[in-house]
């Protein structure tokens, strides 16, 4: 199976490492997973015989530009999408306002006869229907497990393993950064600013942490869940959002005294989509700590199902991307 990776940052390179490390395992159990194209903001490279992944990572990390890689044709990213290949992996940054450039990349990929796997929330939370319809129209597979909850199985779990269940609601912690900050505030009785700074020093929070701490990232994820799992037709504008900036250590202390902890919770059901700090009983399965993510499904047959896992990180997120790639592989080799 020939793969084109769009975006060669943390996740793009993480995936390249995983594909390299797992190449024997993949060949033995499935077949060859060959990366034939890679792009970053400097442009794209293509080699139909396959790109040397270790060399590509090295070139990117040393020079900052994938286009400095030798043995490959250089081209525009939209031309790269037109080259031969089976699957495009879209891992450019998530733009929650326009969805671009990912939206164009994904649509163009379908039009050019490619299946798509993405970790990108932007297009999914802004134009979900358009993407699904286009994929159908061109008879292509579209998978996006890594866009919500990183490594934690959630979309495929609901759609495949829990198939047949009606899902009434999904409640969870879908952002590791805020969970880390709130856990630190609770355990070390420090204020929000101090906990944020620490998270930034550790690379858990970004230099511009707004998307995480103001709840936008969680909002985008519950929109994806609402559309992909519950069959709703929502965009991020339908979400009522409150972030965690105003939480004080005293508030957490008082909540603890009453048997609660405070978590940034995303909550989606047929009536509403809400992201807000919420009091969670300490004994609740939703009370997971550090950067962990958690989601609780409420369903008609299975009743409550809870999953916990790592919501971010290059290798962890690549696990979800790889599982999507494998399921596409199985589908097209049928």
């Amino acid at each position: 199976m020939d793969i084109i990776i769009l975006g060669f940052g943390v996740i793009g390179r993480g995936l390249a490492k995983v594909l390299y490390n797992k190449s024997d395992y993949l060949s033995k159990n499935y077949g060859k997973f060959n990366v034939v194209g890679i792009a970053d903001s400097s442009g794209g490279i293509y080699n139909k015989d396959g790109i040397d992944l270790l060399k590509a990572i090295e070139v990117k990390e040393k020079t900052g530009k994938i286009t400095n890689y030798k043995d490959a044709k250089k081209m525009d990213i939209l031309d790269l999408i037109k080259e031969d290949g089976d699957v495009v992996v879209e891992v450019t940054p998530s733009n929650l306002e326009t969805g671009e450039p990912a939206n164009t990349h994904i649509i163009e990929s379908f039009k050019n006869d490619k299946h798509v796997v993405t970790a990108n929330k932007g297009p999914l939370c802004l134009c979900f229907n358009e993407l699904i319809t286009t994929a159908k129209k061109y008879n292509k597979i579209f998978r996006f497990e890594a866009s919500v909850g990183g490594a934690m199985p959630i979309i495929n779990l609901a759609k495949e393993t829990l198939a047949g269940n009606e899902i009434y609601s999904i409640i969870g912690i879908l952002n590791g950064t805020t969970n880390y900050i709130l856990t630190k505030m609770e355990e070390e009785k420090i204020d929000f600013e101090t906990a944020l700074k620490e998270a930034q020093e550790l690379g858990i929070a970004e230099t511009n942490p707004s998307q995480d701490i103001d709840g936008l990232d969680t909002a985008a994820k519950i929109v994806i869940l609402a559309n992909a799992i519950m069959g709703l037709n929502k965009t991020i504008k339908d979400v009522k959002i409150k972030g965690i900036r105003r939480i004080t250590p005293e508030a957490i202390l008082l909540a603890n005294k009453r048997g609660y902890t405070i978590k940034l919770i995303g909550n989606v059901n047929r009536k509403k989509l809400i992201v807000e700090p919420t009091l969670i009983p300490k004994y609740s399965p939703l009370n997971v700590k550090g950067t962990l993510n958690v989601a609780m499904f409420e369903t008609d047959l299975a009743k409550e199902v809870v999953v916990v896992g790592r919501g971010a990180g290059p290798i962890e997120t690549s696990s979800a991307i790889l599982s999507d790639l494998i399921s596409i592989y199985k589908e097209i080799k049928k």
Binding site: I171, N267, E276, T278, L279
Partner: peptide
């Protein structure tokens, strides 16, 4: 009043 409420789930 510019207050910030946190509710129970």
């Amino acid at each position: 009043k510019g207050l910030f409420f946190i509710k129970t789930l």
